[in-house]
Design a protein around this nucleic acid. Structure first.
Length: 492
RNA sequence: GGGCCCGUAGCUCAGUCGGUAGAGCAGGCGGCUCUUAACCGCAAGGUCAGGGGUUCGAAUCCCCUCGGGCCCGCCA
């Protein structure tokens, strides 16, 4: 690996430390308190005052070092905050002070022990009586003020993004805690978390292109799942009644601001309930998550706004009514497929002529309605044509019991009253097979077999976890909520 | 798949009409005991993404390649 002159300089410092018998990469730093705690202890001090009592130990990454002759100010970052260390020649000793002043580089991980104090200018600080190098950084961190601006570098080397951006750390921490909150919510509602297979013989539950690979053991081609649906419904047949899974799904398609080939899906299935029950569950889940995000990210306007929006509750619109209203096209359901296709074309879609009519309706909806679904919105009751896994509507012929929900023009999830009639399921799969010239859709025979044993009436939902985090943290691109998004391998 | 844009020092960015490479931060040396994007002085740091072409002369113009971004299309 190439070494820059800066790195050479830092490596020389490591060598010097070692030659003096000091370890630049020690094993631990016990008894360390979060910087937050020191800041809290400073709250009762007045400017220039030092706290009484036992010294405190803190550790973190050196972010800036301001040297003023016999005093130096060092800012360190840890997970949740940052803290100024005050290094003084008269506290550390002249010789030690001089050594630290020249040995420390930004990016170094250091530990300090000392007393909390407010600086004369009122900055919460720790007056360091002892310092320890915990890990020497050979490569310098990104520029301290602007941070890492290069989008490519941020994605390829996420550690640099995280170590230089408190905002990025806060976003990914929020993601983790929101997922934890989701689990807590579903656990409390009596759902059982399960893990089903990522490697499957048939990638069902959608029509997206799967990734394929090969099992040496089986000597067969296997696929990465594109959805969780068919596995979880089998568990309903098996009597697990309320199940959910949060896990990676894979679709061999393009990456854009709302799609990633590898993404995290939450699906939940609830026996003896229908899509109206699921609507209530979604409303309660999002109210809770948005409130949580708002407290996690108090300085983020988008998080505060999301909390207000979801607390106010969802509006409910009807798919066909809303589409007719927004597009100005009347009697949509009486239109011929050719008419619908022409409307879709006029809306800028290039769908093939032989697409099923439901596809045209979806395109029209995407174009005319989706951008307007800014506040939390349930879109209810879809025409049956594009939804082979949902149950027919109890009172509207030609419709299925399905809703999607939206926020800020982005689809966040999709729910049905689940189809559990094995014969009708078989027919719907057949229709889907016939509707497509290319055999992208392989139907899952064993799933129909499972339904023959009886699946309880149930509702189910799929929620894109990445999009959920985007919505609640006000993040515009899915790549910014995925730690290591898929990027092309660099060829030298 | 189509269109537009970007790639210059470790990082953040300038670079005019084609005239031979600039700043800030970081790093080095020196100064400074309350700064917080600290400050002041000195010195150093370049495969201008890569390759080819036009030209007396290319970071700059043209072509190709690589990587990335945005928009459109496709992906229920």
């Amino acid at each position: 690996m190439e070494e820059t002159p800066l790195e050479h300089e830092r490596r020389a410092k490591v060598a010097r430390w070692r030659s003096e018998g000091r370890e630049p990469y020690p094993w631990s730093f016990p008894g360390r308190a979060p910087t937050e705690e020191v800041r809290a202890r400073c709250a009762t001090l007045s400017a220039g005052q030092e706290a009484e009592g036992a010294p405190v130990r803190v550790a973190g990454r050196l972010h800036a070092l301001r040297v003023h002759g016999g005093t130096a100010f060092a800012d360190i970052d840890d997970l949740a905050g940052s803290l100024q260390l005050i290094l003084r020649a008269d506290v550390l000793g002249e010789e030690a002070y001089r050594a630290w002043r020249s040995d420390l580089d930004s990016g170094d991980l250091i530990g300090a022990e000392g007393r909390p104090a407010l600086s004369r200018r009122g900055e919460p600080s720790l007056v360091a009586g002892r310092l320890e190098l915990l890990a020497k950084a050979i490569s310098p961190p990104p520029e301290k003020f602007h941070g890492l601006q290069d989008v490519e570098e941020r994605l390829r080397r996420r550690y640099l993004d995280l170590l230089s951006s408190a905002e990025s750390r806060a976003r990914f921490r929020a993601r983790s805690l929101l997922v934890r909150e989701t689990r807590r919510f579903l656990d409390e509602a009596g759902f059982l978390e399960v893990e089903t297979s990522v490697l499957v013989p048939v990638a069902g539950g959608g029509t997206a292109q799967p990734f394929t690979t090969r099992s040496n053991y089986l000597g067969e081609e296997v696929r990465l799942r594109i959805a969780l649906e068919l596995a979880l419904k089998r568990l309903l047949v098996g009597g697990l009644e309320r199940v959910y899974e949060i896990g990676k799904c894979f679709r061999n398609e393009d990456l854009d601001v709302t799609h990633s080939p590898e993404f995290t899906m939450l699906e939940a299935y609830w026996a003896y309930a229908d899509y109206q029950d699921m609507k209530g569950l979604v409303e309660r889940l999002y109210a809770r998550l948005a409130a949580r995000a708002a407290t996690l990210l108090p300085e983020l306007p988008a998080a505060q706004e999301a909390a207000r929006s979801f607390e106010a509750g969802f509006q409910t619109v009807d798919f066909v009514d809303e589409l007719e209203r927004r597009s100005g096209i009347s009697r949509l359901l009486e239109r011929t497929p050719a008419e619908l296709r022409d409307y879709a074309r006029a809306a800028g879609s290039t769908v093939p002529d032989d697409s099923p009519p439901g596809v045209f309706l979806d395109k029209l909806f995407e174009h005319h309605v989706e951008p307007h679904l800014v506040r939390p919105t349930f879109v209810m009751d879809y025409p049956a044509v594009t939804t082979p896994l949902a149950k027919r509507h109890r009172s509207r012929p030609g419709f299925v019991e399905r809703f999607e929900f939206y926020y800020r023009g982005m689809e966040l999830g999709n729910a049905y009253t689940e189809l559990n009639d094995p014969d009708e399921q078989f027919r719907r799969f057949e229709e889907q097979l016939n509707a497509r010239a290319e055999d992208r859709f392989v139907y899952d025979e064993d799933f129909v077999q499972a339904l023959r044993y009886g699946m309880p009436p149930a509702t189910g939902i799929g929620i894109g976890v990445d999009r959920m985090v985007m919505a609640l943290t006000g993040t515009a691109s899915i790549k910014e909520v995925i730690l290591f998004p898929l990027v092309r391998t660099r060829t030298p």
